[in-house]
């Protein structure tokens, strides 16, 4: 990992209280990626924060700045100046972190504003960060502007206790099934979706399988009652 992604080295004993834009989404323990009793090196007590790329500073490079500026203008016109919480540019891909209450309006602007014109939505992908307190569930949208040949990512979060995100199906009808899939797999309720039902799992399935805390099955072995533990409990590298 490069320094650029870590930001400044954390102060002693306070890894999670950096500038607010540093996204700490978890903690990695040990040094050699081994969890459990396997690590006899003495480094097993090490704890490192899992840090995601930090927010980028204006001005951005190239067309990223054009998109961000056009979005700013459009948002200001709609009274939504604070809709975008932060912008992350990493590996040439730009991510707009949008407040969930403003998502529907932002999506409509992104599609219809003549300077933005993101006509094509590649669907929504859920991600579950169980240790990202207060924003455990993320919905990630990839938008494509065929007019300008640009691609952006819009990321929205919601807490596990209140898993509601507005549906953008009114703007992008293609998200019908995608939102159903994300509901099915992550339990994110897309408010405003006309028929938010399960799509891949059976209708009466309990739980949401792609969540990180979804219980996984072990495999009983026909030898003295042995059981192969579920994958998340096996000794493994991380």
């Amino acid at each position: 990992m490069t320094d650029e992604q870590h930001g400044n080295p954390p102060a002693e004993n306070a890894p999670a209280t950096l500038e607010p834009e540093v996204r700490v989404v978890g903690e990695r323990r040990g040094m050699f990626g081994v969890a459990g009793s396997g690590d006899t090196s003495g480094y097993g007590g090490l704890r490192q924060p899992i840090v995601f790329p930090v927010a980028s500073q204006r001005p951005f490079d190239g067309w990223h700045e054009e998109v961000a500026a056009a979005l700013d203008t459009a948002l200001a016109g709609g009274g939504l100046e604070h809709a975008v919480e932060s912008v992350v540019i990493h590996r040439g891909e730009i991510t707009f972190h949008v407040r969930r209450e403003d998502l529907a309006a932002v999506a409509r602007l992104l599609r219809d504003d003549p300077a933005l014109r993101f006509e094509f939505c590649s669907g929504v992908s859920g991600v579950h960060y169980p240790e990202d307190a207060g924003r455990e569930l993320h919905a990630v949208y990839h938008l494509l502007s065929m007019t300008f040949n640009r691609r952006i990512r819009v990321e929205v979060t919601c807490p596990e206790g209140d898993p509601h995100i507005p549906s953008i199906m009114a703007t992008y009808p293609t998200n019908d099934w995608h939102e159903r899939e994300t509901f099915d797999m992550f339990g994110i309720v897309f408010d405003g979706h006309p028929a938010l039902t399960r799509i891949l799992m059976p209708d009466d399935w309990p739980g949401h399988p792609q969540r990180k805390d979804y219980p996984l099955g072990g495999i009983p072995v026909e030898y003295k009652g042995g059981v192969i533990p579920p994958p998340d409990e096996r000794r493994s590298y991380s």
């Binding site: 990992m1 990695r28 899992i50 590649s122 990630v140 899939e181 991380s238």
Partner: peptide, 21 residues
């Protein structure tokens, strides 16, 4: 959509499959 948490395994891999859409 490939997400990594810096580990040896994908944190999340979601495929936007054209058949589905």
């Amino acid at each position: 959509h490939v997400v990594s948490d810096g580990g040896t395994r994908p944190f999340r891999a979601h495929f936007r499959d054209p058949s589905f859409t």
